[in-house]
Design a binder for these strands. Structure first.
Length: 490
RNA sequence: CGGGGUGUAGCGCAGUUGGUUAGCGCGCCACGUUCGGGACGUGGAAGUCGGUGGUUCGAGUCCACUCACCCCGACCA
C-alpha cells in the first residue's frame, strides 16, 4: 500500500488534500496560491466544459473572448463592484524588464511604467460592458447572449486546490436585454441550467435560492445560487447567476432605442461556474479509497485489467480484452484496456480505485473459460460476475445505475443533515456538527452579521419556495413566510 | 497583516553537547523469482543540507540576516 489517504473521519481537509494530490488531479505550483491542473484533473474539467457548453448553446448562447487585462478606470465605474473586488486584484504597472545593473538577473524597467495600470480580470463585467456599449444601439441588437471560457485572478489570502485558488478557470455568461422581465427570466433560466447540470451530470444535489444583500455579488440587484452540502456538512456555493439590473448599463452608458423611439438603459445578467466544481465533485462522492466519479463526467468510465501468468495466458487474455474494449467503444463508452506489463493487477486495482473509475472489468483465464468477466463497482465496492454475451448492455445499465446511486446517496446525506430550527440557540448548539439549518428569517444586514459572529455560519440562501404559513424570524421575532438555509461554508 | 511552524535525494522524514564518507522509508533503475487486491530478494543511481554572511582547526548542527512554503485567524467563487 503505497498511496494511502488520511481517513476523512480523522481529518476531512487533509483527506481532501491527499486525494487531490494522490489521484493526480492537481498540485500546488511554484506560484503561491496557483495550482497546476494535471491531465487527469483537466480531463474532468473538459467533461464539465463539454456538457455545460452544449447546455449554453441549447439555450441560445454563443461563445466569445474578452481581454485578460482591464484598465483600472473601468473597474471603478460601478461603485459597489469595485468595492467588492478591489482588495483582491492583481495590478500590472510595467510592461518591460531589463538586465539588472549588477548583471544578476533582471529588474523591472522603471522607464516602462504604464500610463494607466491594468488589472488582471477578477471577473469581466466591466470590460464586457465597455465593449457592449459599441455593440448595442437598438432593441434589434438585443438580446445579446454571450459566454466566455476564461481564467480569472482573485488574490486570495488563503487558497485550497480547486476550492479557492488565486487563478481559476471558469465560464462567465454576460447577457444584455431590452427589458427587466427578460433579464430576470435569463438569470433564473441560467441558475436552472446550473441546477440541472449539478444534479444530472455531477450527481450533486443542490438547493437553489437567492442570496441576501450581504452575500450578493458586487454590483448585482439579485444573486441566485445553488448550494451543495459536502460530506463534512459544510456548504459549497457551486454556481451563481446574477440579475444586474441596469447598474452596468448606467456605469458604461449602454443605451438602446426601443420600438417607440425612446432611449433606455440595457438590462443585464451574468452567471458563472468554476473549477471549484471539481472540488465539489470530490467532496460530495469520494471515500477513503479515493475518488468516486459520476459516470457522466468520468474521463474513463470503464477500465479493463488483464490477469495472467504465462505468455500463453497473456495472449488469450489480451485478445479477450481487446474485443471487449472495442465493443464498448462502439457504444460510446469511454474505456481503457490497461494491458501494461509493467504493473501488476493488484496495483492497477488500487490505482483505478483511487482515480474513481466507475466500473472495473477484470479478466483472467478463469473468466475466459466461463465466458464471463469480473465487475467491480467503484461506488459500492461490490464485485460480481457478468456473462460475456450481455456485457455491453449490462455496462450501460450499470453506468446509469451508478450515476443515480451516488446522487441518491448524496441526497440522503443532505436530508439527514438538514434541520429545521426555531431559534438562534438551537443553531448555536448544533452548528458545530455541520449541516443545513432551515429557519424563518426577516432580519436586517446587521442581524445577519451578528448571526455570523455568533455562530461562524452564514445565510447560504433564501429558499425560492416560501412557506405556506407564517413563522417566527429567529433574529427579530417578526412573522414571515421567508425561509433561509444557514450553514458553515467553504 | 497578526499568531504558530517547516525548509536535508523525486516524495515523507531522522540526524544527540559542533567531529571522519549525511542516513532511513517509499519511489526510481537492473536482474531473478512472482502475477485473481498496491509482491519479494539481490545489486544500483540519486544530496551545492532554502540562500547569504559570520563564529570555529572543523557547521546540516551555533549566531545574524534573508527568502520560500505550510497551518490557525481577518477576506472570498
Amino acid at each position: 500500500m503505497a498511496k494511502v489517504l488520511t481517513p476523512k473521519e480523522e481529518d476531512y481537509s487533509q483527506w481532501y488534500n491527499d486525494l487531490v494530490l494522490k489521484a493526480d488531479l492537481a498540485e500546488n505550483s511554484s506560484v503561491r496560491g496557483c495550482m497546476v491542473i494535471k491531465p487527469y484533473g483537466y480531463a474532468i474539467w473538459e467533461k464539465i466544459q463539454q456538457t455545460l457548453d452544449k447546455m449554453f448553446k441549447e439555450t441560445g448562447h454563443v461563445n466569445a473572448y474578452f481581454p485578460l487585462f482591464i484598465p483600472k478606470s473601468f473597474l471603478s465605474k460601478e461603485a459597489s463592484h469595485v468595492e467588492g473586488f478591489a482588495k483582491e486584484c492583481a495590478v500590472i504597472t510595467h510592461y518591460r524588464l531589463k538586465n539588472s545593473p549588477d548583471s544578476k538577473g533582471v529588474i523591472v524597467d522603471p522607464e516602462a511604467k504604464l500610463e494607466e495600470e491594468l488589472i488582471v480580470r477578477p471577473t469581466s463585467e466591466t470590460i464586457i460592458w465597455n465593449t457592449y456599449k459599441n455593440w448595442i444601439q437598438s432593441y434589434r441588437d438585443l438580446p445579446l447572449l454571450i459566454n466566455q471560457w476564461a481564467n480569472v485572478v482573485r488574490w486570495e489570502m488563503r487558497t485550497r486546490l480547486f476550492l479557492r485558488t488565486a487563478e481559476f478557470l471558469w465560464q462567465e455568461g454576460h447577457t444584455a436585454h431590452a427589458t427587466k422581465e427578460e433579464a430576470m427570466e435569463e438569470a433564473l433560466r441560467m441558475i436552472d441550467v446550473y441546477q440541472k447540470f449539478a444534479e444530472d451530470t455531477l450527481a450533486i444535489p443542490v438547493i437553489k435560492g437567492s442570496k441576501t444583500e450581504n452575500e450578493r455579488f458586487a454590483g448585482a440587484l439579485e444573486t441566485y445560487t445553488i448550494e451543495a452540502m459536502m460530506q463534512d456538512g459544510k456548504a459549497l456555493q457551486s454556481g451563481t447567476s446574477h440579475f444586474l439590473g441596469q447598474n452596468f448599463a448606467k456605469a458604461f452608458d449602454v443605451k438602446f432605442l426601443n420600438s417607440k423611439g425612446e432611449l433606455e438603459y440595457v438590462w443585464a445578467t451574468s452567471w458563472g461556474v468554476s473549477t471549484r466544481l471539481i472540488g465539489a465533485v470530490i467532496m460530495t462522492h469520494s471515500d477513503n479509497n479515493g475518488l468516486v466519479l459520476p459516470p457522466n463526467i468520468a474521463p474513463l468510465q470503464v477500465i479493463i485489467v488483464p490477469i495472467y501468468k504465462t505468455d500463453e495466458e497473456r495472449r488469450q487474455v489480451l485478445d479477450y480484452g481487446n474485443k471487449i474494449e472495442s465493443e464498448l467503444k462502439q457504444h460510446q463508452i469511454t474505456v481503457k484496456f490497461d494491458d501494461r506489463d509493467t504493473h501488476k493487477p493488484g496495483w492497477k486495482f488500487a490505482e483505478y480505485e483511487l482515480k474513481g473509475v466507475p466500473i472495473r472489468i477484470a479478466i483472467g483465464p478463469k473468466d475466459i473459460e466461463k465466458k464471463q468477466v469480473e465487475i467491480a463497482r467503484r461506488d459500492t465496492l461490490e464485485k460480481f460476475n457478468l456473462s460475456r454475451e450481455q456485457l455491453v448492455a449490462q455496462i450501460k445499465v450499470l453506468l446509469s445505475d451508478i450515476q443515480q446511486n451516488i446522487f441518491q446517496k448524496a441526497l440522503r446525506f443532505r436530508q439527514q443533515n438538514t434541520y429545521e430550527i426555531s431559534n438562534i440557540d438551537e443553531l448555536k448548539e448544533n452548528i458545530d456538527k455541520g449541516g443545513f439549518y432551515i429557519a424563518y428569517w426577516e432580519g436586517s444586514k446587521e442581524d445577519e452579521k451578528q448571526l455570523n459572529e455568533q455562530t461562524k455560519a452564514t445565510i447560504r440562501c433564501i429558499l425560492t419556495e416560501q412557506s405556506d404559513v407564517n413563522g417566527t424570524c429567529i433574529a427579530t421575532g417578526k412573522q414571515t413566510k421567508k425561509r433561509v438555509i444557514i450553514a458553515k461554508a467553504y
